[in-house]
Write a protein that binds this DNA or RNA. Structure first.
Length: 570
RNA sequence: CGGGGCGUGGCGCAGUUUGGUUAGCGCGUUAGACUGGGGGUCUAAAGGCCGCCGGUUCGAGUCCGGCCGCCCCGACCA
């Protein structure tokens, strides 16, 4: 293949709007173009990379026993209304109406359609288990698309769904996918960490995310510095603090005036206290009931954890009028002392270790000081409801501390259970002829996101350094002088390489050598062969590995062997 | 959705504060010449509803209003 027959529009200058390395290099290297914010076209090289990634994913899915299908991106609103996610999915999907006013959405995920599909044909336990997958465009109505391919509104994803008769069978299906994912990332040379996660809008459990640790990542990971505990920010556990001894002499609770001091900072400044001496009381509405969440003043509440603890399907912060109604005080002065008894109090573990603290007084412009649990109010429930912080003790091992890193989520696996199957009537007859609801799992891989993750992981100052498995072409032959003898050598070499199983191109453009070298580095071919004056003079060809500049200068006849040797380490 | 920035040939930018001939520069493109191992040089040329709509004015890229788009920070989140 000749570069002059391809479409590789490289850019010398960096488009001003691209900030991330991956976005810039994919643009400059002629892999992608932006259509509008978060929507991209794939050019020939980008498409080739995408196909490489897809095929690795496909091969590993097939190896794991999954079966490929293709579902529509356009999804009828009715199915989503049956599961309730028409209203509850966060962020809201891209919804649209057809000419007759019927509701549709562009699928951000396919539990509904896939479950409905299975429900139509599933009759007997004998048909189970099976796992279906597809590789297809997904849509998200991102509030703010950014970072090129990393957070797009339209993106390519592989999603698989397993259907099993029971939990034990689901566990096996899940494990097969999990193992497949480990293989996928090994083949792609992406060193992922597998972290505990929460299922968010999907619902489910045993959620794991495969993350690439990367400073440009949008997710925060918590990793233990001693053991292998890894979790995302939403579900990293906060270790229970050592309870401090109860003081012999408890101070008397005292009401102090705190005019206009609504925030922790304002109260601290006024009272000369530090945030860790305050208890914040946050009022929530969980499935229609009031809940007061107590958090140490210098900590932040984790709504996911709170919702999990309450087993609430809908959780939101109370608004100002609800706060006034329940506490009798405006926003900013809520406290646990004297709350109506119907308000359920949930305190973070930190609270158990606190004494002599400050709380809102449930009256305007006032706080209580010298407050203690047991003395001034009761806490029936302690739970881990705060966001983990760097330096927290590891919840898993004895003396580890949690540290944070940034990461890009590349894949996730989780067990859905029976929710979707139940809502959509995906049932089968068991051995005794009884109707049983199918047990499901869901497994996603961000195919297009992997493309940019690879660039983030492997770029250097000159361009991309694709791993062999994902490179658009494995080798480029730079024909520095287009005279017939050398061109003939290039043609033959290219044919030899192809015969040896390499995907190779010849850069036969009428460009100066410098341009070809720069472009070769930018596009990131793992192997670069140079045919130029040395070939003419000494009959040798330079074969160089992009990754580490390792180079062999060999006679034409030995080029394929040298390429093989260098490719082995690419 | 809040805060900030930007929108001028394909790309990167200047010009806008202080309205006034023909809107510049670099890169790229086209033609030619020289050149030929890390984005070379010279000559000539093409290419612009200055994001859109409206307003002020004798006159608007420049001032005013509205809208649209893009980027960054935040909020939200797989």
């Amino acid at each position: 293949m000749k570069v002059t027959d391809l479409y590789i529009p490289t850019l010398r200058e960096v488009p001003a709007d691209a900030r991330l390395v991956s976005h810039r290099l994919l643009l400059r290297g002629g892999f992608i173009r932006m259509v509008c914010a978060g929507v991209f076209s794939y050019l020939p090289l980008g498409l080739r990379v995408l196909r490489k990634i897809e095929n690795i994913v496909r091969e590993e899915m097939n190896r794991a026993g999954a079966i490929e299908v293709l579902l529509p991106a356009l999804s009828p609103g009715d199915l989503w209304k049956q599961t309730g996610r028409w209203w509850s999915f966060q962020p809201p999907p891209l919804k649209l109406k057809d000419g007759a006013g019927r509701d549709f959405l562009l699928g951000p995920t396919h539990e509904e359609i896939m479950t409905d599909l299975a429900a139509q044909d599933l009759r007997s336990y004998r048909q189970l288990p099976f796992t279906l997958y597809q590789i297809q465009a997904k849509f998200r109505d991102e509030l703010r698309p950014r970072g090129g391919l990393i957070r797009a509104r339209e993106f390519i994803m592989k999603d698989a769904y397993s259907f099993d008769a029971d939990r034990a069978s689901l566990d096996r299906s899940y494990q097969a996918m999990y193992d497949g994912y480990v293989r996928i990332f090994e083949r792609l040379s992406l060193p992922t960490v597998i972290c505990e996660a929460s299922a968010g809008s999907m619902g489910g459990h045993d959620t794991k995310e495969f993350m690439l640790v990367c400073d440009e990542g949008e997710d925060t990971l918590f990793l233990c510095d001693k053991c292998d505990y890894t979790a995302n920010a939403e579900c990293a556990q906060s270790h229970r603090p050592e309870p401090t001894h109860v003081k012999d002499q408890l101070g008397e609770r005292d009401l102090v005036e705190t005019p206009n001091a609504r925030t922790v900072e304002e109260v601290c400044e006024l009272l000369g206290a530090t945030p860790d001496q305050l208890v914040k009381t946050l009022l929530f509405v969980a499935d229609g009931k009031y809940v007061a969440a107590l958090i140490r003043g210098d900590r932040e509440l984790n709504e996911t954890k709170l919702a999990g603890h309450l087993a609430a399907t809908e959780l939101r912060m109370a608004n100002e009028s609800e706060i006034e109604e329940v506490t009798g005080a405006p926003l900013g002065f809520t406290g646990p002392v004297g709350l109506p008894t119907h308000v359920r109090i949930v305190a973070d573990h930190d609270i158990a270790a606190m004494h002599d603290f400050v709380v809102g007084a449930n009256q305007a412009d006032a706080h209580f000081v010298a407050v203690d649990v047991g003395q001034d109010f009761e806490v029936a429930e302690y739970a881990d409801i705060r966001i983990a912080m760097e330096g927290d003790p590891c919840p898993r091992c004895e003396d580890g501390l949690l540290m944070t890193k940034r990461g890009i989520e590349l894949a996730h696996v989780f067990k859905l259970g029976q929710k979707y199957a139940e809502d959509l009537g995906c049932v089968f007859a068991d051995e005794e002829g009884k109707e049983v609801v199918t047990t499901m799992g869901c497994y996603g891989v961000g195919v297009s996101r992997i493309m940019s993750a690879l660039v983030e992981q492997y770029a250097d100052e000159n361009g991309i350094r694709w791993p062999l498995a994902a490179a658009p072409y494995e080798a480029t032959i730079l024909l520095l002088d287009n005279e017939p003898d050398l061109a003939a050598i290039a043609d033959r070499l290219c044919a030899d390489l192809v015969a040896a199983g390499f995907e190779a191109v010849i850069d036969d453009r009428d460009e100066r050598p410098g341009v070809k070298f720069k472009d070769a580095d930018l596009v990131g071919y793992p192997l670069r062969l140079v045919i130029g004056k040395r070939t003419k003079g000494e009959g040798t060809v330079e074969v160089r590995r992009r990754k580490d500049q390792e180079e062999r200068v060999v006679p034409v006849a030995e080029v394929v062997a040298a390429a093989r040797e260098l490719a082995a380490g690419a």
